[in-house]
């Protein structure tokens, strides 16, 4: 049997048959994990911000993945929250400068089934195209009541376009003193930073030599 002869020694070690991949049979349904939304706190006392998603089978793994996908750069990171996508309650989205809070009225809350009084976290979209940012927390008996309370607590001069409401109890939080050391070497990863690749001196010297 002959194998793919690659310029990449890593690939040669895989011994891939030469004919492998020449035809592509359709495969059945593939494995599909669920998604988790990832929020990062760039430094202490700053707001958590939505950064993206990871696919993961459990929330612990979602955190492991989130850390390296969304906090492997920068001088600092002080916390990560991961939330299962289905655990986030979403408000409608407004446009053209309309404030979502203007659409939230008392009836929304009164029509909802009341549960336990619980802590909720609220995230706001302050500009279309940008990230949802953590506004703060509040207590409520339902997500709808949380929306109403959010209006009283967080509505401001600037319009918010969209709200995400999440029960605090479902959030996996990796933050605080216990975890601060896992980000401690971030500032040492200079090789991931454009700033570490200055070479103007070398070009200058080269040009001078060429002239001479």
């Amino acid at each position: 049997m002959s194998f793919i002869n690659s310029l990449d020694p890593r690939i040669n070690r895989l011994s891939i048959p030469s004919e492998f991949g020449a035809s592509f049979p359709e495969q059945g349904e593939k494995d599909q994990f669920i998604t988790y939304e990832v929020f990062v706190q760039p430094k202490e006392n700053k707001a958590f911000q939505h950064e993206g998603i990871v696919h993961a089978p459990t929330e612990e793994m979602a955190f492991l993945f989130a850390k390296e996908q969304f906090s492997r750069r920068g001088m600092n990171c002080s916390g990560i929250w991961v939330i299962k996508t289905t655990d986030i309650q979403v408000s409608p989205i407004t446009e053209n400068g309309e404030d979502i809070y203007d659409y939230i009225n008392k009836e929304i809350m009164e029509g909802a089934a009341k549960g336990e009084n619980e802590k909720y976290q609220v995230f706001q979209l302050m500009k279309r195209g940008k990230q949802h940012i953590h506004a703060g927390e509040l207590d409520a008996h339902s997500p709808e009541e949380a929306l109403w309370n959010a209006k009283n607590k967080f509505a401001g001069d600037k319009p918010a376009f969209n709200l995400w409401i999440v029960k605090d109890s479902v959030i996996l939080k990796i933050e605080g003193e216990e975890f601060s050391d896992i980000w401690e070497t971030l500032p040492d990863k200079k090789y991931r930073d454009a700033m570490d690749y200055k070479a103007t001196e070398k070009i200058k010297k080269f040009k001078e030599e060429q002239k001479a």
Binding site: F20, F33, I34, T35, P57, T58, T86
Partner: peptide, 29 residues
């Protein structure tokens, strides 16, 4: 190569996918 990577990793994904049984995939937010 891409396909080999997928195939070599298939058992990992298969095993982990069994952890999320019953949970429905929805598009991210």
């Amino acid at each position: 190569v891409r396909r080999t990577a997928e195939e070599r990793g298939a058992w990992v994904r298969r095993a982990l996918a069994s952890k999320t049984k019953g949970e429905e995939y929805v598009a991210p937010m």
